[in-house]
Computed example of a mutant assay.
Amino acid sequence: MSSRSAAKINQYFRQTIPMMVKNNVPITPPYYTLWYSYTSGDIPELSTRIDDIVQRLGQCDRYMCDVLLEEFVVDAAEDTLAQVQSSINQVVKSLHASTESAMSHADHLNQSMSADIEKLSQEAIQSNTHSAYKLVSIARRFIDKTEDYRTQLEQQNAEIQALKAKVAETEKQLFIDGLTDINNRRKFNDDIALYTASADKTCLVMVDIDHFKPFNDEYGHLLGDKIIQTVAKTLEQSCIQIPGAQAYRFGGEEFAILLPNANLKAAIQFANDVRERISRLNLKNKKTGQSIRPITTSVGVAQFQPGESLEALLERADQYLYAAKHAGRNCVRAAVA
């Protein structure tokens, strides 16, 4: 897309976004990349497939788009997708600014012309000539046209405002884990860099569900997902007691918690509280109505050291997490304060 002119990208954008909205597809970078490719004709086979899907099903929704993404937009780099999202935001802001400017100019023109036409009308009455009245009539028709133009601009601006809200909502969703609705790994990467740079003390808590694979094998993946969701919600609720604390799904059955301005002793106490809360969870197998076996977690805690790299902090927290596993699981391990 970078080799095209800004005008061409703008043109494709104006075509792409309405198509995505019409097909009820979220405006996220992967989906936008897919539909941009369709609009621009960069991948003829993709365009043919989407046309066929729309003809057969009436629309190409997000689920069909997921299939097409796997086939046509494979392994899109995260930084590339972030650039696409940035481009979407910039174009929407540019459209909004252009429309606001046009509306302002239209208002100014109407005010100016209204005053001039009023003077011209008075002169036409005094001169009482056909040409003067005709000139006033033409001028009034012109100002009616500019008023129609301004009404169209208002409608366009309302559409752009709605689009801005939709893009903002979508951008927020980029940082939310789809399964658990808590912060995702991308948000963790952003926040840990911010916390370690601004907070006096920051502690990292890594949480891993013990023996998770047997849950899936014994009860099925749906219940496995329910366990992950319930643990995530427990972590999120636990964070409320510490100002600034945030929970994240780190990947799979592993989670992370950032505790800004917390010393190691407080972080260890928090980690133990969380571990105990999770161990008291009582989930039932919907098929049998029976309670499943207890859910336990292994927890590692590390405090950020001034000058330490983020990679080193993560590595230390991981070491303590695995130390908890080797100690028998369902326990917390941390550096000595």
Rank of each mutant, 00 (worst) to 15 (best):
A6M: 12
L34I: 14
L34C: 12
D42T: 14
I50A: 08
I53Q: 08
Q59P: 00
Y63E: 14
C65Y: 01
L68R: 11
L69V: 11
V73I: 15
V84W: 08
V84E: 11
S86V: 03
Q90I: 12
K93D: 09
H96Q: 11
E100M: 10
M103Q: 10
D107I: 02
L109S: 05
A115R: 12
D116Y: 04
E118F: 04
L120W: 05
A124H: 07
I125M: 10
L135K: 07
D144L: 06
T151R: 13
E159M: 05
A162N: 10
L163N: 04
K164G: 15
K164E: 14
Q173P: 00
D177H: 01
I182K: 07
N183A: 15
N183C: 15
N184F: 05
N184V: 08
F188Q: 09
A197L: 12
I209G: 02
F212M: 09
Y219P: 01
H221Q: 12
G224M: 04
Q237T: 13
I242H: 12
I242E: 04
Q246S: 13
F255L: 03
F255S: 06
A262S: 15
D273G: 12
E276R: 03
R277Q: 15
R280I: 08
S298A: 11
A302T: 00
L321D: 04
L321H: 03
A323Q: 12
H326R: 15
R333W: 00
V336K: 12
